[in-house]
């Protein structure tokens, strides 16, 4: 199973991870369109954590015991038994935000662009490879293989 690993030691705080996450989670998925004034607001599932000269990116860990899934009142949030990925079925989510209150990593955001649904790291399932990892210039974000779900 693949997961994103974030390394605070080599993160330079450039924020490209957020930029590319926003692009991937925009309607156009195109960097020259996503940030246009007329485009809908952009949202990132990656946080850039900064204090003093320290920084690192954080995002969903696809927990083995995912409190967001357990707290989900609709069944929209689920952990895939095969891939272990925690994803939201946006057609079922009603925007109660219980997942936001449950997630100890603060890794879920409100998406109010088209209804009210939770948005979180999906490892860029559609794209095939996490865009934040691909665009990290310093290998502060890498893909690691982990066992188990």
């Amino acid at each position: 199973m693949l997961r994103i690993k974030s390394d605070p030691n080599v993160c330079i705080g450039c924020g490209l991870c957020r930029i590319w996450c926003k692009v991937e989670h925009s309607p156009s998925k195109n960097i020259s369109k996503a940030f246009k004034p007329a485009a809908p607001p952009t949202l990132s599932c990656v946080e850039l954590e900064e204090r003093g000269c320290e920084s690192f990116a954080s995002m969903c860990r696809h927990c083995e015991e995912p409190l967001c899934v357990y707290g989900c009142i609709t069944g929209a949030m689920r952990k895939d038994p095969q891939t272990g990925l925690v994803t939201v079925d946006r057609s079922k989510c009603v925007g109660c935000w219980t997942c936001i209150l449950m997630c100890p990593n603060g890794a879920i955001v409100r998406d109010e662009r088209n209804g009210y649904t939770a948005l979180k790291c999906d490892m860029c399932l559609e794209r095939g490879f996490p865009s934040c990892v691909e665009h990290c210039p310093n290998d502060a974000l890498v893909i690691e293989e982990v066992e188990d779900v």
Binding site: W97, C103, G106, A107
Partner: peptide, 14 residues
């Protein structure tokens, strides 16, 4: 403003 509210409950739980 409820962004990242789970960080707080995470602190409560820990």
């Amino acid at each position: 403003d409820v962004e990242r509210a789970g960080l707080l409950t995470g602190m409560m739980r820990a």
